[in-house]
Design a protein around this nucleic acid. Sequence first.
DNA 1: TATGAATGAGGTTTCATTCAT
DNA 2: TATGAATGAAACCTCATTCAT
Lengths: 237, 237, 237, 237
Amino acid sequence: MKLAAKSKTRSPPARRRVASRAARASETKVVSAPLSRPNRAERAAERRQAIVDAAMEEFIARGFAATRLDDIAKRAGVAKGTIYLHFKDKESMFEELIRTAIVPLVGRLQAPPPAGATVRELVEGFALTFIREVVNTRRGDIVRLIVAEGPRFPSIADFYYREVVSKGLAGMRAVIELGIARGEIANANLARFPQILIAPALIAVIWQSLFAKHAPLDAIEMFRTHLDLIFGERRTT
Amino acid sequence: MKLAAKSKTRSPPARRRVASRAARASETKVVSAPLSRPNRAERAAERRQAIVDAAMEEFIARGFAATRLDDIAKRAGVAKGTIYLHFKDKESMFEELIRTAIVPLVGRLQAPPPAGATVRELVEGFALTFIREVVNTRRGDIVRLIVAEGPRFPSIADFYYREVVSKGLAGMRAVIELGIARGEIANANLARFPQILIAPALIAVIWQSLFAKHAPLDAIEMFRTHLDLIFGERRTT
Amino acid sequence: MKLAAKSKTRSPPARRRVASRAARASETKVVSAPLSRPNRAERAAERRQAIVDAAMEEFIARGFAATRLDDIAKRAGVAKGTIYLHFKDKESMFEELIRTAIVPLVGRLQAPPPAGATVRELVEGFALTFIREVVNTRRGDIVRLIVAEGPRFPSIADFYYREVVSKGLAGMRAVIELGIARGEIANANLARFPQILIAPALIAVIWQSLFAKHAPLDAIEMFRTHLDLIFGERRTT
Amino acid sequence: MKLAAKSKTRSPPARRRVASRAARASETKVVSAPLSRPNRAERAAERRQAIVDAAMEEFIARGFAATRLDDIAKRAGVAKGTIYLHFKDKESMFEELIRTAIVPLVGRLQAPPPAGATVRELVEGFALTFIREVVNTRRGDIVRLIVAEGPRFPSIADFYYREVVSKGLAGMRAVIELGIARGEIANANLARFPQILIAPALIAVIWQSLFAKHAPLDAIEMFRTHLDLIFGERRTT
DNA sequence: TATGAATGAGGTTTCATTCAT
DNA sequence: TATGAATGAAACCTCATTCAT
């Protein structure tokens, strides 16, 4: 009634072990190199990161429901069961991934305001960062994923609204009001709808996912044109 | 004798069928009642429409992968097998649905241009129609559905780009160029990025799906503010 | 992405269909024999019964946790999914089975009391029925199954106590009191512990399951000896 | 960073290990403290006992198949792997447990026969011990466990029959025959069915597991009544 | 010796699709 | 044409067992 001896020849672990060996090789003869050779905890962290990365890829490519944990495991080079050492189930994994995926995003966007800059320069700097860091990267896909799955994961939508959207809009509103006060922005109504400021950037995110192959979109130039509408035309060089 | 939880007492189908039968019975042998008794083809069309409507609701609520044909059948008041009399499989049904869902949309948006109107009036009329017919209706959810499922259904993205996006952008570009020619629009660059024109409307679509419950958004007023940026501030009436 | 054509050659259904054909054959030339040929509902009931029987066998042989739905399906000659058309899940199936398994048991034991019989004859008749119908049949295994799984399925133990044990004990107490009143039973204390009356029969049930192969036990003769203790020795033939 | 629901904060093992370490530390290098510092073998034995105890609890609570080694390890305060240092696998552990669980049981029941006692006193003494030591303790659950799992572990049923049942019955038969010879027991047939003697005690075991919460059962008084049937009514003191 | 992260076979359950009625 | 019971592939998840540390 007992199982036959299990075959122990899986290739993904082999791949991993090779890596560890390489690391060890570079340290040959160093008897105890606790800092440079990945220890257990470090390897667990690596493994977890591999799962996170693989899951992100799969979720982006297929959405929550159509993603198979099997594929995530394969891509991460771990066994299916290993995923459950790190996450309670598929749903919690998804929610946690989405949550943690945007936290660094927010930090990166709160760039230090260059001293003595105009409001337009402020907004333009922010937008360029956003386009560089989000629109043309995997993070843009995450934004699209939130749009796609938000209605089915209200807790994600709630979290995203609370942690990102409301704060982001508040920040933009402050900037807009500064622009109005300084006379850079003519239309005082804009402060009521900071969404307008970011709208073209979000459109660019969606465009890249769906239509980039049909017609490329120069997000930066589009955003500059948008700023011209808000701040008045640039001096034509 | 207890049947599993999935209740066997679906009232809608029963109701529907009984109704049809009653209608038929009361008209039996009356050859000349062409208007009141739906013939076979008509009933098939009705049924098909019920399936289409039900499927749309379910796909919007859950996305493609998580939607069950069982639920569609239940909601449509037909048997599961009946769906396969009208559609090859779930995938074709989804694709066909998305395709046919937007065709009337496009027609509705090509409103007859009011003679002697300014370009701003033109655009504003178009936008108000869009907001009324799309942003605050089920059709907005379809747009979000396209954003959500587009990457997994390239044929849908292709179709949508070909039939809607490229034509829509071309139309908007023409209007923008008219506005530039007439001097209503100052920034000539806008013609290169007609996406900017529609951006806030799309943002409104997404906002309604995800964040409406956190903070309502007055799409019309936002769009008017956006138009002020493009056409110059409104005269306060 | 669609499944290959499914192979349609499973043997169990074939077996079933042969049965239907036999039924049909016996009615050859009877064009419409709605009563004798199993119709859809009848066949569904048959199928359900096959599942119930198969499940009972498997649960008895392995206990709840170790029983595989796969094996039940195989034994019943149905697909795994079919089980879920009749039962919500494995647990409800088990509980429902145990419940329905004992209902006919109780009825069978409430035999019509033969007029003019002594109390001993009454008890002996009941005991013989119990031994014939329970101890040496599959139903004995069900009793053992209740003993085995009761603690993990409190609802089963509760149900069994309520519907069988308490009623059975009450009935036995009444009979004992009758025996005391008539002077057949000397020990009045027995009415306080009707469990004593049935104890050897239950021991026999357990013995058959565990030790029959080591040493056969003549349950009937053992019970007669037990009755001799209660009613006084039989006239030795 | 959140680990799955299975909490990582097991206090018992931590407590245990800390304690052992403290003990070891305070005694480090003190060679001559053989009585106070448990040596390796002693600690291994302690650990093994902890595993045995924990396993017993879990097996009783859930049965063989539904018991998880994880839970046993947690309860015993050891790592899962440690179990495999003491037992080949789950199955052998279960079999060994059941075997060793009853050995002390048997010894305890073979009480020294009080000199000059009547046979009834002999049996009553034995029964009281059984009720005290088995019916109302964890050992009663073990008996039920044997009933529950016996059919799936023939080797256990065999062992139990060989080592306990056959010997126990032989002993009881001897006592019965003594009672018959001394005239204390009137019914000579009882020697053919010593099972009758123990039957109410076993019923009590089962009753405690399943129905105690519905209706308490005074096992001792029930057994005394049973003995009255066998030996004749007690003189009411 | 002891650990516990990792494994992956195997379990339960779901659901798109078929087909006899 | 319409039904819905039946199917079975494939999904998620568990847990006995192993093994590097």
